[in-house]
Design a protein around this nucleic acid. Structure first.
Lengths: 187, 187, 187, 187
DNA sequence: TATGAATGAGGCTTCATTCAT
DNA sequence: TATGAATGAAGCCTCATTCAT
């Protein structure tokens, strides 16, 4: 692994372990096993480092969200695929998920980055699906962004409870969550 | 207003405006109009101050959540009351809501405080209501904490979108959100 | 002496001893016997500190240059007074003189400060005197700024040689220098 | 041009543009178009580099000062030649002149180097000339080093004013300056 | 109780220097 | 000889905290 990747991985680990506010360069250098000046060969300052870590996490998530998405499948199948992908992403990449969730609206993250297109523009896919479902009379008529926020929020919230081990998230709970988010927006 | 309250109010304002990570004592002193030593008459250190602000916000929320709650009302009425109270609290106290939401799982907040009982123990009320609904066969059988997290998460997520003005939250949207959270957990 | 004055005195001493480029905060704090943060109660940063030291030195010099100046005295008396004052200032305040001489054109000193009026505007007095002498046909006709630079430069140069003990500067040498600068610009 | 010369030229340019205190190796490497390690093939460290640049400037000046010097010419002619050479050197090699002037008494330059003999020992020539003039009763009796410093100082000072465009230095001003320095030391 | 000058540990960053290629 | 990624000592500066008033 390159020094640059070492540094970024150590940064994400530390953010997850202690929160961004307590991540210092000293901790990063120690964990990444690099000299204190090495980071400046790759990042102009701390903010750029954090933004780079954020960008990488977003790219990873963007890839993940559309895994196995079949535009020809039924509305229900497509909905479940998107929601499951998001849930699985959070379960398999907790550090990335929490970092994105916490800092998307932090002043530490530059606005352009926050609004970056995910790898394959998953947001657009989900919004289209919502509008399609509403046109078919399957989903309740409401502001599409409100609807998006709603089903997205269910996944986020469930993941946060899972992280602190409020409950397990096995196959059965996973299905319950997907069902709940589907039913929430039905007519 | 007492100096203590001045300090706590200034702290919450600053956290809301700039994020906890960039709140310094110097800014608090300036905004609260007190001398730099004054705080130590009330709080042993910065962590205690932040925890006190957190505790106050939680107490305020706890009060709010059970406003107008009638234990004799129907399951549906009681559910709607609790969800609406949470939503209204977030709308009327955005600083408090966001602070609680962001820092409930932060290492900055002591664990005992995070798990504190609200003023009138609103969490217990909600959990009881969930279990009651499940026993009646109205709510789907699932882990009650999962269920709680689910309906709580819908409100939180909707509020965050509202704060960044993704959509309005008038009477009609409010009803849609309450309906969605109700339908999400029906059998 | 106040902390602020301690800091400024230590800074000037260090500049004299080691040159501005090697003056570090650590050295200043040690020599001034103050904590490392104390300086920021008085100066926003290192540049402001150095500029403040420069301003003080300029004010001191400005006062000195017009000491005992009698506008009614003869041209020769007035010329000697100004030149002697400059020489005496350099002999009695070598640190201030060298600092001003070295850094007046350094980017470290802000342009407004460099062009500040001395206490009683000694530069104007000298220039007037030069022009007056030229009108009387005593001084050679030449650009007044060139003439000013010439007689000023003699003093500066003589002082620098004195500082490194190339020669003594007793009463006799002093008179020789004043005579030389007077004769240099006669018709 | 060799890499070594590239490095030295870049260093002198940068010292002239920004002052020694802000010249970093990174800037030198960039301007000289060499790799960051290359310098260490030629100079053990930064101080040696700066001293080498200083030595080169001094050699260049030493050569210049005795250009066209005719030991057989009259005292006046020889004096004018030496003074004019110094003035012309400063006008044609401002970077070298200022660097020498600023750092001759800086702790950055090693004492041996500061007192180095110029290529053809111009200092000795000037001192001899002064003593000769005094013996002839043309120059005023005074410490020869004081006298040397005096006429040298006039040239230095005039050049510094010229660099900041206080006045032009055409044929007429040049002659005025030479005359002034001659008259300054006459009996 | 209220103040704010003083403190110093620790933060981020720079930059001369090394060393493997 | 030429390179530049890596280094870490040391620089400047911030800020929570103390203490004399």
């Amino acid at each position: 692994m390159s020094k640059k990747q070492d540094i970024m991985a150590a940064t994400l680990d530390l953010i997850d372990e202690e929160g961004l506010q307590s991540v210092t360069f000293a901790k990063i250098f120690k964990k990444a096993n690099v000299g204190s000046g090495t980071i400046y060969n790759y990042f102009a300052n701390k903010e750029e480092l954090v933004n780079a870590v954020y960008r990488e996490a977003r790219l990873l998530m963007g890839e993940y969200l559309l895994k196995g998405y079949d535009p020809e499948a039924s509305l229900y199948e497509r909905f479940k695929c998107l929601q499951l992908n998001r849930l699985k992403f959070g379960m398999h990449h907790p550090k990335e998920f929490l970092f994105i969730d916490s800092f998307s609206f932090s002043p530490y993250i530059s606005p352009e980055l926050r609004d970056m297109d995910d790898a394959q523009n998953s947001r657009e896919v989900i919004l289209s699906l919502i509008i399609e479902g509403q046109k078919q009379g399957v989903f309740k008529e409401m502001d599409s962004h409100l609807c998006h926020q709603l089903i997205h929020g269910i996944i986020s919230s469930i993941l946060k409870g899972y992280y602190v081990q409020k409950y397990p998230l096995n196959e059965i709970q996973t299905q319950q969550v997907l069902e709940a988010s589907w039913k929430a927006i039905l007519v």
